[in-house]
C-alpha cells in the first residue's frame, strides 16, 4: 500500500489547483501512508520510511510556502498574488507560485500529522526537564 498511497498523494498534490486535491489532501494521504505502516509494523519501521525530523520538515514546509508569497510583495503586488509560467509542463501541469505554495503545505501537513502520531505512539517524555527551578539570577553569565 505504501508506494501506491505515496504516488496518489503526489498526484493529488499536483491536480489540486482547480480540482479537488491540493497540498493539504496530498499531505494527509502521504502521512496516512506512514501512519498505516506504523499501525502495522510499529513506529521503528515507520521512522525508516522517511528518516527526517518531522518537526523540521513541517518548519521547512511553512518556510517554503511563505517564501513563494514573497515575489508578489517585491513586485509591488499583494502578498501571495499568483505568478504562473506561461506554458504548462508536460506531465506535471501548469507551474506557478500557488503550486510551490501547495508543496510547502504538503510538507507541513506530512510533518505535523506524522509528528503528532509518532509522539502519541512512542510516548517520549514530552518535556524532558522536570521542574522549573527558580533561576539564580547571577548564574546565567554564559547566556548573556
Amino acid at each position: 500500500m505504501l508506494p501506491l498511497l505515496l504516488m496518489l498523494s503526489i498526484f493529488m498534490l499536483f491536480r489540486g489547483h482547480n480540482l479537488p486535491g491540493g497540498g493539504f489532501i496530498g499531505g494527509l494521504l502521504a502521512s496516512s501512508a506512514i501512519i498505516l505502516q506504523m499501525v502495522a509494523f510499529g513506529p521503528k519501521v515507520a521512522r525508516r520510511i522517511l528518516p527526517v525530523n518531522y518537526l523540521i520538515l513541517a518548519a521547512f514546509g511553512v518556510f517554503f510556502g511563505a517564501l513563494w508569497g514573497l515575489p508578489a510583495l517585491f513586485a509591488g503586488l499583494p502578498y501571495m498574488q499568483a505568478f504562473w509560467l506561461p506554458e504548462p509542463i508536460p506531465g506535471v501541469g501548469k507551474i506557478g507560485t500557488p503550486v510551490l505554495f501547495d508543496i510547502g503545505v504538503y510538507f507541513t501537513v506530512i510533518g505535523v500529522t506524522t509528528k503528532i502520531a509518532l509522539l502519541l505512539v512512542e510516548e517520549p517524555i514530552l518535556f524532558p526537564f522536570p521542574e522549573m527551578k527558580s533561576v539564580p539570577v547571577d548564574h546565567q553569565e554564559e547566556v548573556a
Binding site: 518537526l55 518548519a59 521547512f60 518556510f63
Partner: peptide
C-alpha cells in the same frame, strides 16, 4: 504578518 512567520519557520529550522 510575513516577518514573524518566516522568522519563526527559520528559527525552528
Amino acid at each position: 504578518i510575513v516577518s514573524p512567520l518566516i522568522g519563526a519557520a527559520l528559527a525552528v529550522l
